[in-house]
């Protein structure tokens, strides 16, 4: 459903991503792994149109999305949970979720999707009228995921969901992502530094080093790979 080919992108005259190739099938959880500064977030920003790639192609369900506006890409069904959550901290949880409904369709289905989100994350219903900034880190990450789900994604991109969270909360979030992929047929692109947890949740993975795809394979293959073990897992 998503096919990224030879994607090059960067900031100003500095190129960060070099010929990234990556593909993702319906209902699949694919991990993009790499250390800090490898170019993972730049890749997310390039795919979602928040920066303009210099060259390459991003085909999603048959449509070329490379160099399209971020809004156009959202409408096509690629919704991200950005790194650092990027919530509206002085607005209530409910208002944050309302902001996730960007199109006519998502506005019409808001109530039913809201109920679904409350089922995924019951805490959010209790906290609906509370300012998002007063929530714990884990709860804030739940708001960020729920806000993206309100946008009815076909492809959900999770950028560093584990950042600054307790391990059990990371497990919860990753479980939701996994279940979503299997039950609702939403594909998930999981961008992570925590390689052990990401590989446990993903079907396949790509390892990015210095802006290039260094390795790819099934989750089991990557977990068993000598280079991955040495460089990332410390074994």
């Amino acid at each position: 459903m998503l096919k990224v080919e030879n994607l090059n992108a960067g900031y100003g005259s500095v190129n960060i991503l070099w010929d990234i190739c990556l593909d993702l099938n319906d209902g699949e959880v694919v991990a993009v792994l790499g250390s800090n500064g490898a170019g993972k977030t730049t890749m997310v920003r390039a795919i979602t149109g928040m920066i303009r790639p210099t060259s390459g192609s991003v085909v999603f369900n048959g449509e070329e999305l490379c160099r399209k506006s971020s809004r156009h890409i959202l409408d096509a069904g690629i919704v991200q949970v950005p790194e650092g959550r990027q919530l509206f901290t002085d607005m209530t949880v409910l208002e944050n979720l309302q902001m996730g409904a960007f199109s006519k369709e998502t506005k019409e289905h808001f109530q039913e999707n809201l109920q679904k989100c409350y089922q995924w994350f019951p805490k959010l219903e209790e906290r609906a009228r509370q300012a998002a900034g007063t929530l714990s880190g884990g709860e804030q990450q739940m708001v960020a995921v729920a806000r993206a789900l309100i946008g009815m994604p076909k492809l959900l991109i999770l950028d560093e969901p584990s950042l600054g969270l307790a391990p059990n909360i990371v497990d919860d979030i990753l479980n939701v992502a996994k279940t979503l992929a299997k039950e609702s047929n939403i594909s998930v692109l999981l961008v992570e530094q925590d390689i052990t947890k990401a590989l446990a949740a993903a079907d396949r993975g790509y390892v990015i080093e210095n802006g290039r795809v260094a390795l790819s394979g099934s989750a089991e293959e990557l977990a068993a790979n000598e280079h991955v073990k040495k460089a990332y897992l410390g074994i």
């Binding site: 928040m50 971020s70 950005p82 990027q86 919530l87 902001m99 960007f102 806000r147």
Partner: peptide, 23 residues
């Protein structure tokens, strides 16, 4: 209002606003 909420959203977090498709 929706537009009013969008104005507040942009003022609190422009990146988050763009992620949500706010112009």
């Amino acid at each position: 209002s929706t537009t009013g909420k969008q104005i507040r959203a942009v003022s609190q977090n422009p990146v988050g606003a763009e992620v949500c498709g706010i112009n």
